[in-house]
Design a binder for these strands. Sequence first.
DNA 1: CGACATTTTGACGCTGGTCAATATTGGTGG
DNA 2: CCACCAATATTGACCAGCGTCAAAATGTCG
Lengths: 267, 267
Amino acid sequence: MKTTAIPATVQSSVADICRLLRLPEPAGARCARVAFTHRAVKSGNRLCSQGAPLEALYIVRSGFLKTFIDDDAGNETVMEFPAAGDLVGADSLGYQVHPSNAVALTDVTVVVIPYQSLAKLSRLCESFDLVLCRAISRALVEEQALRTIAGSLSAEARVGRFLARFAQRLRERGEDGSHLRLPMKRQDIGSYLGLTVETVSRALSALHDAGHVAVSLRDIAIRDEEALLALPKRAGGASDCETPAGRTGRGAPRRNLTWSDMLGAAA
Amino acid sequence: MKTTAIPATVQSSVADICRLLRLPEPAGARCARVAFTHRAVKSGNRLCSQGAPLEALYIVRSGFLKTFIDDDAGNETVMEFPAAGDLVGADSLGYQVHPSNAVALTDVTVVVIPYQSLAKLSRLCESFDLVLCRAISRALVEEQALRTIAGSLSAEARVGRFLARFAQRLRERGEDGSHLRLPMKRQDIGSYLGLTVETVSRALSALHDAGHVAVSLRDIAIRDEEALLALPKRAGGASDCETPAGRTGRGAPRRNLTWSDMLGAAA
DNA sequence: CGACATTTTGACGCTGGTCAATATTGGTGG
DNA sequence: CCACCAATATTGACCAGCGTCAAAATGTCG
């Protein structure tokens, strides 16, 4: 939960934001003037609600959230689990109201970018919008990647990828990644992956029994990340089309490339 | 395929682009100077390829495309079917290379927005980037909506929604919408919805037999759009939680709100 | 310690994936 | 114009993965 290298001020500059987003700062920019306030959200509280008018974008500084859509029947579909450095509210830019809800799964702090100030920013800080574009673009790719795996992988493989991806995101944020504490319920994971609670639970048990992870409630220890990513698409055959024997060969040259492959090489 | 109200010039202004995207033009803008060239792509040819360096964004003027991702095993996952007014290549902005392929399903013309000129545009035409942001944001919401239906609806309901959505998109572009000619194969629809070819075919036959549509190969006549959108989530129960009897009641006040609900009211 | 939420495990059935065969279309050349 | 072929679409039979229902186990909070 530590926000590496970003001081605990109550305001953030454009440079801070780019660092958080892990995107290069726009070229010639005297954006130093502009500063954005922070906001704290306690665990369980909402950051924004579906149907509410668009007021601001948020960039997470610390903690975890869950964004979801309530359909007409009342059941929710989880869209993302934003963590430090993720943009929240990007989906509302194209419309006048928020299409989704965001609640804090842990205590959270965010940088607030008021919607009104976006137009002003275009003048004050050229091509700051472009940084936003790139951040939204990334969210889009993430969403596409998720649809790819949800559409073609078995339940166990989806859960495996979810865990590996979560660990990778922790690593990107400077944490260990070999041990993780999930901030969300099984139900949320299921909704996120297009599965039921029971299936998620069973998949976790199976991965545990196979020795790929050690599951104790929401505490997960990653034992064999390779294996998590090499789980079969459907049934029967070996992990992939390549890798004739064994299971991807233990200590193969590639490390955390697999989800990145799908995302197509980060900038 | 007529590009309503947009002249068949070989260049487009910023205003033209906003009209195509169905987004309001940025406020105070002397963007008239800037002009973008067009490009024609014959049916079956590629607009851009996965892994290729990012060179330009495209906005479709006429025709249909298919964007898809090839995973390591060689099988493709269809992401979108861009039509007139849709942005192609938005997913590449956040990275240095194209994460996806785009091929023309029919003869296609696009407006080319060179990547290099995006930075220049920020100066010449303030908040043009913001228009882009909103277009990408819409794509993101579309993607989320798709995951919602793919994650919770039955095969038949997915195909029904797909057809209704396709008809709606034609209507948004000034066409009839009661009769449509699909530009893509069953296989593509299946990949798009997370189903197999056979299941798509069966679903279409079922919808045909139920009288909701008339299917003849790629020519589809929509007979009861209400019914297409009211198909059951899983199995057993009635169409929804509401609507006690019948099937959503034939000629109910709502028309093309259903997918829009999910998208959360267009701007 | 008791009420409740979350997680796990079991049994069963249906949806939809898989394999296989046939039908229809479109394109090409004789 | 028709024979021939590949690509696409449809249909059928089979069965397994996962959703559903039900209950028990474990954890959380007042």
